[in-house]
């Protein structure tokens, strides 16, 4: 019960802060505080009556909710897909890496530091160029590098672009956390008892690091939502942030961000509940 109250508070605070931020350009442009409050009132009215909200598409006003559902689902599937793939790959590779000898691990960590600092735009540009290069050399088009319009859906390229950096972040974080965990005494104890290293790693260490990874994944997600905007514009994908950017009014920003935030919020609430419920360590979560 307590946790539900807390989560509800968080959700309300998120929405309130989004609304407050969305009014700010009015304040910046007109340097007038009362206009800012008027704008916030407008935004609030639009949010509460979202079924009547309109937006401008090629100069014509259209109903927001009629058009937004399918790009919304599309964007979500790209985001979730990328997050899931990045997480699973990182977890599998972490297990493999930790079975390797020390000096290889050191090399891998150095490599990861380098990969971590690749700017995301460079990754997108390299993926684009790579696909074109493969097409030129072999005549095989791996995937379309840009979608042609609202109807066409491409999945592979945006998911690959979005997952590369989160994968690197997860991978590095998992290795660091797991190495810290491996130096604890219970690991030595279980190894001395004759348990296989892989068993200790997969069952005990992973379970104990999962909480740290869970909290880390929030900041990864933060990064990914920002990247979604870039990916959708570079590859001309008609997802939710594309709609948002093409009509960049405060109401639109608030509505889109709230729609984008809610599913992730629910997902994280679920995970948090699971962790609190099953580890019985509510205070430290």
């Amino acid at each position: 019960m307590k946790i539900i109250k807390k989560l509800l508070m968080q959700l309300i605070l998120t929405i309130v802060s989004i609304i407050l931020i969305s009014g700010l350009p009015e304040l910046i442009m007109n340097k007038n505080v009362s206009m800012y409050f008027n704008k916030i009132k407008d935004v609030c009215r639009d949010i509460f009556q979202m079924n009547q909200m309109t937006y401008f598409n090629q100069g014509k006003p259209r109903l927001f909710l009629d058009d937004i559902w399918s790009p919304y689902i599309y964007s979500l599937s790209i985001l979730f897909g990328a997050l899931l793939i990045a997480f699973c790959m990182a977890q599998l590779l972490t297990w493999v890496t930790l079975m390797l000898p020390m000096f290889i691990r050191g090399a891998i960590k150095n490599l990861l530091t380098f990969l971590e600092s690749l700017p995301d735009l460079l990754v997108f540009a390299l993926v684009q160029m790579g696909i074109v290069l493969i097409y030129k050399k072999t005549g095989v088009l791996v995937s379309n590098v840009a979608s042609m319009g609202a109807e066409e859906r491409i999945y592979i390229v945006p998911i690959v672009c979005l997952m590369i950096l989160p994968f690197v972040y997860f991978y590095k974080m998992m290795i660091l956390l797991a190495e810290e965990e491996l130096s604890k005494q219970y690991v030595e104890m279980s190894l001395a008892k004759g348990m296989r290293r892989i068993y200790v790693l997969v069952v005990h260490v992973t379970r104990n690091t999962s909480e740290g990874i869970f909290h880390f994944s929030k900041s990864v997600l933060w990064f990914m939502i920002s990247n979604l905007l870039l990916v959708e514009i570079i590859f001309n994908i008609h997802g939710i942030t594309h709609y948002m950017y093409s009509d960049f009014r405060p109401e639109m920003l608030a509505a889109c961000l709230i729609l984008l935030v809610i599913p992730f919020f629910l997902l994280y609430a679920l995970f948090e509940w699971v962790i609190v419920h099953f580890t019985k360590r509510g205070e430290w979560v």
Binding site: I21, I28, K218, L221, S226, L229, F248, L257
Partner: peptide, 23 residues
């Protein structure tokens, strides 16, 4: 702390682009 963690869900780039455009 828990209340502030709601800021994790507000993407920085989008907000920065949004706020800095008029400036």
């Amino acid at each position: 702390d828990q209340l502030l963690s709601s800021f994790y869900f507000i993407p920085l780039t989008i907000i920065a682009v949004f706020l800095l455009t008029p400036v």
